[in-house]
């Protein structure tokens, strides 16, 4: 992953073109440019379809919904999955270990985890979306309503009537 100004990105892009592998520039909503390999960018179905449609590859892709911190983390995932092979058992095990460490780190900062989840959804990065949503689901799993509210900072807004209804359902347990 390379970062830099737009000009530096363009230069890197041109350089890569000569060596046969295209580079693609992704720009965060803060205007920061990230230069990634095409293989890495293709992890995103959104970007993949734009590239295949012959879209603005040279101009790069502005991503108005993603901030720099989130984009950097998303690219870290895409680089690993886009640039590395997953043919042998060892290669697949290495990727699985990467995923495990990647999500463990994200899980420690929930707000950031949600940002990455939203970016994965917006960019249609299927593997990353599955990884983050499963992580959030695992946090919910096995928790009581009270524990879920505490874990996720959700305000309790059920009325007495709602509660009565839910209790009514519960009596059929």
């Amino acid at each position: 992953m390379a970062t830099g100004s737009g000009a530096a990105a363009a230069a890197a892009d041109a350089e890569e073109k000569e060596s046969g592998s295209r580079m693609i520039t992704l720009t965060s909503n803060e205007g920061k440019a990230f230069v990634v390999t095409e293989a890495s960018a293709r992890q995103s179905a959104t970007i993949r379809s734009m590239v295949d449609d012959g879209g603005c590859v040279d101009k790069g892709f502005p991503l108005p919904n993603v901030d720099s911190k989130t984009l950097a983390r998303v690219i870290q995932y895409c680089d690993e999955h886009g640039n590395k092979e997953a043919h042998t058992v060892d290669e697949r095990a290495a990727l699985a270990k990467f995923d495990k460490d990647f999500i463990a780190e994200l899980d420690a900062d929930k707000a950031f985890l949600y940002d990455v989840t939203m970016a994965a959804n917006y960019l249609h990065i299927q593997g990353l979306f599955a990884l983050t949503t499963q992580c959030i689901a695992d946090t919910i799993k096995g928790k009581t309503p009270e524990e879920i509210r505490t874990a996720f900072g959700i305000e309790y807004d059920l009325t007495a009537q709602d509660e009565e209804e839910i209790k009514e359902e519960d009596t059929h347990a």
Binding site: K110, Y114, T117, M118, N121, F129, T133, Q134, I136, A137, I140, K141, G142, K143, T144, P145, I148, R149, F152, G153, I154, E155, Y156, D157, L158, E163, I166, E169
Partner: peptide, 29 residues
């Protein structure tokens, strides 16, 4: 917070849960 996630994403997350967890989620908010 998780409640601020767009509904479509939250729905994708809740779909991953087993039936028993769905029951508890119904009493969250």
């Amino acid at each position: 917070a998780v409640a601020n996630l767009p509904e479509e994403i939250l729905s994708e997350i809740l779909l991953l849960l087993p039936p028993k967890s769905i029951l508890w989620c119904r009493a969250v908010c």
